[in-house]
Amino acid sequence: MGAAVLAVSLLLGACGDAAPATPAPAVLVVAGRQVDFVAELSAGFVEGVQRVPGVGHRAVGPDIVDNASELRTIQDYLPGERGSITLFTFAPELFADSLGRAATAGTPVVALHSVPAAGSGVQLYVGNDNRTLGSELGQAMASRLPADTEGLVVIGSPHPGVTVLDDRVTGVREALQRLRPAVTVIGPFDTKQAPGANKQAWRTLQEANPGALAFIGVGGADAHSLALLRDTTTRRVDAGFGTDPYALELTAAGEMVLLSTEPYLQGLLAGAIQARCAKEGRELPAGWLPSPGVLIDRAGAPAIIERQKTPEARSAWFAPLADEILGDLDDRLRPLDDAR
């Protein structure tokens, strides 16, 4: 049996029972469709749904990050008549009451990329172990600093207080403090989400800390700004999350280190699970499906740059891993309470 067929076969057993005559569409509700990693989540979601013939898909949400607008958007989908829901939001607590009503109505909901808030009634979460990813990035940065180095490492976050980003900060900080105890880690400082404000925030932090050993951003906008702010006189190695093209080029040159949360894969997994369960009329599996990330250094950057050049290259890259995860779903699911 082929990998894709095996993945579909095993996925059927993870859902529930009784196929509807016309499956409801799979709906993705997102915050900020113009945000780069949200676009990756959305593209992966479409591919995941398209793995299941006969199930339609729809993506809705504000163009720019606007929690209130996203909350208004989701209200039309809570009863489930317009399809099951996969939700990515920067503010899970804000959506807890609405998602609780969706759960009461029997509407299947998948939380994507951000851990669902207590009381939301969401039973399935697809996302990273963000503390572990932060630790991996912190270890990579520590390896670039001599053991007896003293000085500052500055951490920034576009959304302090957002659980997944705070967990990345914790992972980075713990790794640096463990491996380079003479280094002082400060932050996270609020670096803002909007591109212009984010770049200005990092410029201000760099002007205030001209001798810093490194600047590390835990949001996607941060890596882009840190890349743009470098010039020919910059000698330190900075770090961030994501696959921003400018940051990738600098990573290939050995001037940055990146950690990709692989949002395309997350969207693909959520879309495939949601579509299959919609088609078969089955309940969603329950728990946390951890989605792996990848550390990108000088050696690995060229392959990621090629992967990101076309939708076809990206799809081919992720297909075997998606088949493997979907084919081993029951064994990979962890308790939702463990999600971080």
Rank of each mutant, 00 (worst) to 15 (best):
A4R: 14
D17M: 09
A18M: 12
A21N: 06
A26I: 09
R33K: 15
R33H: 06
E40A: 13
A43T: 01
G44V: 04
F45E: 00
R51M: 12
G61P: 02
L71T: 09
T73P: 12
D76A: 14
R82E: 14
F88R: 06
L94K: 13
P108D: 06
V109H: 07
A111Y: 10
H113V: 11
Q123N: 13
G127D: 12
L133T: 11
G134L: 12
G138K: 09
Q139G: 14
A142D: 05
T149W: 08
L152P: 04
I155S: 05
P158W: 11
P158V: 07
D166G: 01
D166E: 02
D167G: 12
D167S: 14
G171T: 01
A175D: 00
L176V: 01
T184M: 04
T184Q: 15
G187W: 12
P188I: 00
Q193E: 15
A194P: 03
A201Q: 07
E207R: 12
N209Y: 02
P210N: 06
L213G: 06
L213P: 06
F215Q: 03
V218P: 09
G219T: 09
G219V: 03
A223E: 10
S225Y: 07
L226G: 07
A227C: 09
R230Y: 10
T232N: 14
G240S: 03
F241T: 05
D244H: 02
T251M: 05
A253V: 03
M256Y: 10
L258P: 04
L259I: 11
Y264A: 07
L265P: 02
L268Y: 13
L269S: 04
A275N: 03
A275W: 06
K279I: 00
R282E: 13
E283A: 14
L289S: 09
S291F: 10
P292G: 02
V294P: 08
L295D: 02
R298P: 09
I304P: 03
K309A: 14
K309R: 15
P311I: 09
A313H: 15
L321G: 01
E324R: 14
L326C: 03
L329I: 03
R334G: 02
D338K: 10
A339V: 00
